[in-house]
Design a protein around this nucleic acid. Sequence first.
RNA 1: GGAGAGGUGCGAGAGCGGUUGAAUCGGGCGGUCUCGAAAACCGUUGUGCCCCAUGGGUACCAAGGGUUCGAAUCCCUUCCUCUCCGCCA
Length: 421
Amino acid sequence: MLDLKYIRENAHLVKQAIANKREKADVDALLDLDIKRRNSIGEVESAKAEQNKATQKIAEMKKAGKDAAAAIADMRRLSDAIKQKDEELKEIEDQIYQLLIRIPNIPHKSVPVGDERANLVIKTWGEAAEQDFKPLPHYEIAEKLGLIDFARASRMSGSFFVSYRGLGAKLERSLINFMIDLHVEKQGYTEIFPPFVTKREAMFGTGQLPKLEEDMYHCGVDDLFLIPTAEVPVTNLHREEMLNGDDLPIKYTAYTPCFRREAGAYGKDTRGLVRIHQFDKVEMVKFVKPENSWDELESLLQNAEEVLQALELPYRVLTLATGDLSFAAAKCYDIEVYARGLDKWLEVSSCSNYVDFQARRANIRFRRERGAKPEYVHTLNGSGLALPRTVIAIMENYQTDEGTIKVPAVLQKYMGVERIK
RNA sequence: GGAGAGGUGCGAGAGCGGUUGAAUCGGGCGGUCUCGAAAACCGUUGUGCCCCAUGGGUACCAAGGGUUCGAAUCCCUUCCUCUCCGCCA
């Protein structure tokens, strides 16, 4: 959510941002209502000032034992008028709020303008090892080695759910442990194990609601949502809090499963593990001081890259263009791993700076020191990493011509074997 | 799931429906004293919004409604916390 005052003073920038993000939001209607609102506040508050004075007088009269009946009768009329004006004001503020929460965050200056074709590849790391054979796509080798049950999972839960088995299941668990250990031991994050369902307010705080309600699994009886990413519960840990400036930056990492209905996404890249309704992910979340958030984005990206470097998987980094940027983000880097069997680049991480957008929605503030004015923190998060596509890359890039899969060196102590066969 | 208790400022904790934005204690900050410190004493210590803005106004005692001329204080709903019983990994 943006600051109303900021929108008032920078309407053209906001409109530009909406256009560049290919969102729809009515800034002019908002500005119109803003004027109405301020007029209305003037009326209501002067009426209330009058009422407060009169009320005090009545109290004094009663104390002095005088009859206050006439004054009370007068006040009844004023009181009714105030109630009515208050209602009008509330109506206006509701409308403002509804418009305000639909205005997206403003992209940073360094973000290229355009749709996904304007995404900028800023870095490529590693090379696909030369091979004299064509590796099988992951879904075939996984099936062959008994690592993943696609058919059985579909039978019980529907399509786009999978069940891992044997060393396939262990690979999943090993990757989770390896990634968390790396974030905690080498990169200074604190591990969190949060709830996997949250309330509406939490989804709103990080910006999933109201826009993405259709993409989430929802438990109607309790009005709870299954989390689409750990970003939601971990960022919301500090919702409605006043943090201590000395404690910043706060760096958390969390493993969670992620649930996504992906409504309408069928038919595109949907074979195997590329796109499934439930997947595992290790996430990093940071709460930082505003002046540091752009540096923190770079180090967040680096922390995510280190996972792929340790796994020795080739990848590239993209700066997302405005049209590809999510609603709440000011800037976002995507990391794509190269999968040799599919011969495709697959997104395994998005590292975003939300600046104060989420913090304002979720009311997460800090004081630089005792007595200082509260300020909104900046929030960032990045995957480190999404598991299924990492698994794809391992199964395809580490495949041998004998139809086995070598275990990446850093995973061997977790897996207990050097080769999956 | 059943039965109770409760949610007040940085913390503890008071608050007959009428100068209560909120007593008191503690903490923080500033000062007096001291070579310095401690102790003691004095002062100070919330946030949002609006305006004809070095000032004024208004709102906020979990959240939302209601009663009233007037609500932290009375009523209703929701959320959360705690205790006891039941159930359970």
